[in-house]
Deep mutational scan, measured.
Amino acid sequence: TVKFKYKGEEKQVDISKIKKVWRVGKMISFTYDEGGGKTGRGAVSEKDAPKELLQ
Rank of each mutant, 00 (worst) to 15 (best):
T1L: 14
T1Y: 15
T1S: 11
T1E: 06
T1C: 10
T1F: 15
T1W: 13
V2D: 01
V2H: 01
V2N: 01
V2M: 08
V2G: 01
K3W: 09
K3L: 09
K3Y: 13
K3V: 13
K3I: 13
K3C: 09
F4C: 03
F4Q: 01
F4M: 02
F4S: 03
F4I: 04
F4E: 00
F4G: 01
F4W: 12
K5I: 15
K5L: 13
K5A: 07
K5S: 11
K5G: 04
K5Q: 10
K5T: 14
K5F: 15
Y6W: 14
Y6T: 07
Y6G: 03
Y6M: 06
Y6A: 06
K7Y: 08
K7A: 08
K7V: 03
K7C: 13
K7F: 09
K7N: 12
K7D: 07
G8T: 04
G8Q: 04
G8D: 06
G8E: 04
E9Y: 10
E9H: 10
E9V: 14
E9L: 10
E9F: 09
E10S: 10
E10A: 10
E10T: 11
E10Q: 11
E10G: 05
E10P: 08
K11D: 02
K11Y: 11
K11F: 09
K11G: 03
K11R: 14
K11A: 04
Q12I: 15
Q12N: 08
Q12T: 15
Q12C: 13
Q12R: 09
Q12S: 14
Q12V: 15
V13T: 06
V13P: 00
V13Y: 02
V13H: 01
V13C: 07
V13N: 00
V13S: 02
D14E: 14
D14Y: 09
D14M: 13
D14Q: 12
D14H: 14
D14F: 11
D14G: 07
D14W: 08
I15G: 02
I15F: 09
I15A: 04
I15L: 13
S16F: 09
S16E: 10
S16V: 10
S16L: 10
S16G: 10
S16R: 10
S16T: 11
K17Q: 13
K17L: 13
K17R: 12
I18H: 00
I18F: 03
I18D: 00
I18Y: 00
I18P: 00
I18Q: 00
I18W: 01
I18E: 00
K19R: 13
K19Y: 14
K19E: 07
K19W: 11
K19H: 09
K19T: 14
K19C: 12
K19G: 05
K19I: 14
K20C: 14
K20G: 06
K20L: 11
V21D: 01
V21R: 03
V21A: 10
V21E: 00
V21T: 06
V21F: 08
V21S: 07
W22G: 02
W22E: 03
W22Q: 04
W22T: 05
W22Y: 08
W22N: 03
W22C: 06
W22R: 05
R23I: 09
R23E: 02
R23V: 08
R23K: 11
R23A: 05
R23C: 05
R23W: 12
V24K: 10
V24M: 10
G25W: 04
G25I: 02
G25K: 05
G25S: 03
G25F: 04
G25C: 06
G25Q: 03
G25A: 05
K26S: 13
K26N: 14
K26R: 12
K26M: 11
K26V: 11
K26G: 13
K26C: 11
K26W: 07
K26A: 13
K26F: 11
K26H: 13
M27S: 06
M27G: 03
M27A: 05
M27E: 04
M27V: 10
M27P: 00
I28F: 05
I28A: 01
I28H: 00
I28D: 00
I28T: 01
I28Q: 00
S29I: 15
S29C: 15
S29V: 15
S29T: 13
S29N: 15
S29H: 15
S29F: 15
F30K: 00
F30R: 00
F30P: 00
F30Q: 00
F30S: 00
F30W: 01
F30G: 00
F30I: 02
F30D: 00
T31W: 09
T31L: 13
T31P: 00
T31R: 03
T31C: 09
Y32A: 00
Y32R: 00
Y32S: 00
Y32L: 01
Y32Q: 00
Y32E: 00
Y32K: 00
Y32M: 02
Y32C: 01
Y32T: 01
D33M: 06
D33C: 06
D33A: 06
D33Y: 07
D33Q: 05
D33V: 07
E34W: 06
E34T: 10
E34C: 10
E34Q: 12
E34A: 15
E34I: 13
G35V: 08
G35P: 09
G35I: 06
G35N: 05
G35E: 09
G35M: 06
G35C: 04
G36T: 07
G36S: 10
G36K: 08
G36M: 11
G36L: 08
G36H: 12
G37N: 07
G37W: 04
G37V: 03
G37C: 05
G37Q: 04
G37K: 05
G37E: 04
K38H: 09
K38V: 12
K38Y: 08
K38C: 07
K38M: 09
K38T: 09
K38L: 09
T39C: 10
T39S: 07
T39D: 05
T39W: 11
T39R: 08
G40V: 06
G40L: 08
G40I: 05
G40Y: 07
G40Q: 07
G40N: 06
R41N: 07
R41V: 13
R41Q: 08
R41C: 13
R41A: 06
G42Q: 02
G42I: 03
G42P: 00
G42C: 03
G42N: 02
G42L: 02
G42D: 01
G42Y: 05
G42V: 03
A43V: 14
A43W: 15
A43C: 14
A43N: 11
V44H: 01
V44M: 10
V44N: 01
V44K: 01
V44I: 15
V44P: 00
S45R: 14
S45E: 15
S45D: 14
S45A: 14
S45Y: 14
S45M: 14
S45C: 14
S45T: 12
E46K: 09
E46P: 07
E46G: 08
E46I: 14
E46H: 09
E46C: 10
K47Q: 13
K47F: 11
K47L: 12
K47A: 12
K47S: 10
K47V: 13
D48W: 11
D48Y: 13
D48N: 13
D48G: 07
D48P: 01
D48L: 11
A49V: 05
A49M: 05
A49Y: 04
A49F: 13
A49E: 01
A49I: 05
P50Q: 03
P50R: 03
P50L: 04
P50F: 03
P50C: 04
K51G: 09
K51C: 11
K51V: 14
K51Q: 13
K51P: 15
K51T: 12
K51L: 15
E52T: 08
E52N: 07
E52F: 13
E52Y: 11
L53P: 01
L53C: 03
L53V: 04
L54M: 07
L54S: 06
L54T: 09
L54Y: 06
L54E: 03
L54D: 02
L54N: 03
Q55T: 12
Q55I: 14
Q55F: 12
Q55M: 15
Q55L: 14
Q55W: 12
Q55Y: 12
Q55K: 14
